[in-house]
């Protein structure tokens, strides 16, 4: 039985890659990029709503920044999953399943409520509910296995 523990690691601006399992830094990196995207989304939405005189090209640039950050979040999350061990992957899968299920049920169910007179919700609101449900699902799964 060897006492040497194999580690391979490389770094990029998207985070560590090719590590044999997640470190707390990987989680913080994912959280950081997610927060950056959320802030950019809210900022871009507010800015575009408040300044109708903004030029077409500038408006496109402002609108694309959150989308670029969202793509980064997806890449970082996929790397997080790839480097995760089997239990972390199971927990994330349960979170995704819960988030997706709640999101689909809520969006389809709320459509009927809208027809009955409930206030209209945008697609972003539905996506936010799905993301919140994903977080709840991950927390629940973590508790089950702790």
């Amino acid at each position: 039985m060897t006492d040497q523990i194999e580690q391979t690691e490389s770094r990029s601006w998207l985070g560590r890659t090719h590590v044999y399992l997640n470190s707390p830094g990987d989680s913080y990196q994912l959280l950081g990029w997610t927060l950056a995207w959320a802030i950019a989304f809210v900022g871009a939405s507010s800015f575009l709503r408040s300044d109708p005189a903004i030029g077409a090209r500038a408006g496109w640039v402002v609108a694309l920044i959150p989308n670029f950050l969202a793509l980064v979040v997806v890449i970082v999350y996929l790397r997080f999953l790839r480097d995760a061990d089997e239990l972390v992957r199971r927990i994330q899968l349960e979170g995704l399943a819960f988030g997706f299920g709640v999101g689909v049920i809520f969006s389809m169910g709320y459509q009927l409520l809208e027809r009955a007179g409930a206030p209209e919700l945008s697609f972003s609101d539905m996506a936010a509910i799905m993301m919140f449900a994903f977080v709840v699902g991950v927390v629940r799964a973590n508790r089950r296995y702790s």
Binding site: I5, E6, Y20, L21, N22, D85, E86, L87, V88, R90, N142, R144, Y145, S146
Partner: peptide, 22 residues
């Protein structure tokens, strides 16, 4: 956990019987 290349959470979950390993 380090020797097995898994997280400490996984080791704890296996020991407490809350998770069966692959």
């Amino acid at each position: 956990a380090t020797r097995l290349k898994v997280s400490r959470q996984t080791v704890n979950a296996i020991e407490t019987g809350k998770y069966d390993p692959s």
